[in-house]
Write a protein that binds this DNA or RNA. Structure first.
Lengths: 346, 346
DNA sequence: CTGAAAGCGCTAACAG
DNA sequence: CTGTTAGCGCTTTCAG
């Protein structure tokens, strides 16, 4: 009777346990399991039978250490509860899985400090590529990204000085498109809800576009409503609606950071007696799956978040290929289309 | 000038590089970095200075291999886009972070096969604990969980035969509570939207409770509407509403698997001329942040998903502690409270 | 408080 | 097609 490990011990079987029972070397087990190199069908079958019998699961930490490939791709996003990031993650994951790569996700909770921490713990795992959507970023985090030595893809929002690759939506253009819609539908005094004060983010970019558009259309200057802090999406809407009613009573159109926020704005506005869109037109962002079902149905901006994930993945694959050939992939800058979806709220 | 690695090479600095530059042994660097054992303040400072200068980031694969601790906790959930899981992840993550553990998340997309795959790739990383919410589960997956050798916490739904620990909501009780509400508000013919045919899941459990409650209240037998497949939440609602209008015209109350589904049901019902709640009362699940803001505001079931994550984490910590003492943590079975939140849709 | 030796479980690079 | 040898970069264990 073959023995491996101490009898009755709970330690997981190792590759040499499998090798011994299969009557081959550990190297052959390794090859059989990875479909690497050539292993005769007969040998492979025997190995796989033992693997199955033992319930052997290879230890990837050991494999990673030895091969220098962690099999991990990191993604850092501001929040998991924002479904846009969930969809991006899904698209990215689907693109990476066929390559044997796993997606490792971290949330920064919209904080530069937390993001920096997340990034550092992610780097400890030696990811083979990094996708990151930053809301704000510390200098140290930027430096880490620059020196990561692996492909970095910033997404959703194009930073002023990108690390290298970017897959984004042109948020300024979104803001302009929204301004155009508001102008065409007779709105005069626009407002935009933005995150708290920051260098620049997608909400401030859209606000900037809205401002430009408003100016061009000869409308009053756009008012900014700060949602303040990393609040839940709906909570931001409640605050913003209160702000409009209490301090910005002349506003007749508002652009929200997210559809969920827009729904809350509408709800709160209505609760306090204002009519939507009659008194205030409300514009969402993201075309969340419920946007078409609410009353009023949301006028919003749609873009393909899943595709965004897929494109991020393709960029990474491309960069891997370039690295394999000893080159650096040229910085790639992809702007995804968006769509103005006019429904009933604006 | 000290040298480490090949000049100009892009390989990340290792612990011995740090050690050499700091004039100490690698072991001392290791200790200084982990605040483990005793290192004089002076030595520690010197080490940290070098670490900073080099931008050294320890390789956790090596650490994991050597220490036998991966620093990872795995979580497997059906879908990332369902915000309930995002909130659980957040609570769990917050509980684990202070212990230096990272959460590694995988999505099964509501498929047993995918779940099995996810679980296997997760096991390769040797997680120190596993949280899993299964919609359906293969036998092999169940075996893997049983033999994982680390604490396993099943959550959200209590399976018929739990692996060990469970943190769940009593979905049958939820169903009964909903039936009670429907009965008290004069509804006679109830329906429940459930996932596709499966052994048992939280939607089928709630349907079961609804059925019991209806029977007790002397109402007609509950009709089941199969949402079919791993559809998006809203899409399920659209299908279900169509089913009601086309084939179940006498239904006057419906329980939905999720608030997002409920919103879609209401939207579609209304689009096709039915009134909510007058013709059909619609009950959601989850108390999503928008539930209180929609028109009509959603009547739904609320429970604290973040707390669920926290409790899962506490259970794990408890199990770690037990293991440290050479014992096995007794199976723990936690049922979280829920709340019937009556608003306008039912 | 610090260091030296040994090895975690795998895979790269050669041999045969 | 298969095996051997040598590490990967840390941490454990045991000395000092």
């Amino acid at each position: 009777m073959p023995s491996f490990g101490k009898a009755g011990s709970k330690t997981a079987p190792t590759m040499s346990d499998v090798a011994r029972l299969a009557g081959v070397s550990a190297m052959t087990v390794s090859r059989a399991l990875r479909h690497d190199g050539a292993v005769s069908q007969k040998t492979r079958d025997k190995v796989l039978a033992v693997v199955d019998e033992l319930g052997y699961v290879p230890d990837q930490a050991a494999g990673a250490l030895s091969s220098g490939r962690s099999g991990l791709v990191g993604m850092i996003a501001p929040a998991l509860v924002n479904p846009i990031f969930g969809m991006v993650a899904r698209g990215l994951n689907d693109t990476l899985t066929p390559l044997g790569l796993q997606l490792f996700i971290g949330f920064s909770d919209y904080g530069a400090e937390r993001e920096e921490h997340m990034l550092e713990s992610m780097l400890r795992r030696r990811p083979e590529a990094i996708a990151i959507a930053s809301d704000s970023r510390s200098e140290r985090a930027a430096r880490m990204l620059l020196n990561a030595g692996v492909p970095v893809v910033e997404f959703l929002h194009r930073p002023a000085t990108p690390i290298r690759h970017v897959v984004a939506v042109d948020h300024v253009a979104v803001g302009r498109a929204v301004a155009r819609h508001f102008a065409e539908t007779g709105r005069k005094r626009l407002a935009a809800i933005v995150g708290r004060e920051r260098q620049t983010s997608n909400t401030t970019d859209r606000a900037e576009g809205l401002r430009e558009g408003a100016r061009q259309a000869g409308l009053a200057p756009v008012r900014l409503i700060s949602a303040g802090g990393p609040l839940a999406l709906a909570e931001q809407g409640v605050r913003a609606a209160a702000e409009i009613l209490d301090n910005l009573a002349d506003i007749d159109a508002v652009l929200c950071p997210h559809d969920i926020t827009a729904i809350a704005v509408i709800g709160e506005l209505r609760r306090r007696g204002a009519r939507v869109p009659d008194d205030v037109a409300v514009f969402g962002f993201g075309d969340h799956e419920v946007a078409r079902h609410t009353l009023p149905a949301l006028t919003t901006i749609g873009f393909n978040a899943g595709l965004m994930g897929v494109e991020i993945g393709k960029l990474m694959i491309n960069a891997f290929e370039a690295a394999r050939l000893g080159r650096d992939a040229a910085p790639f800058n992809l702007t995804l289309d968006f769509e103005v979806i006019v429904r009933d709220s604006a």
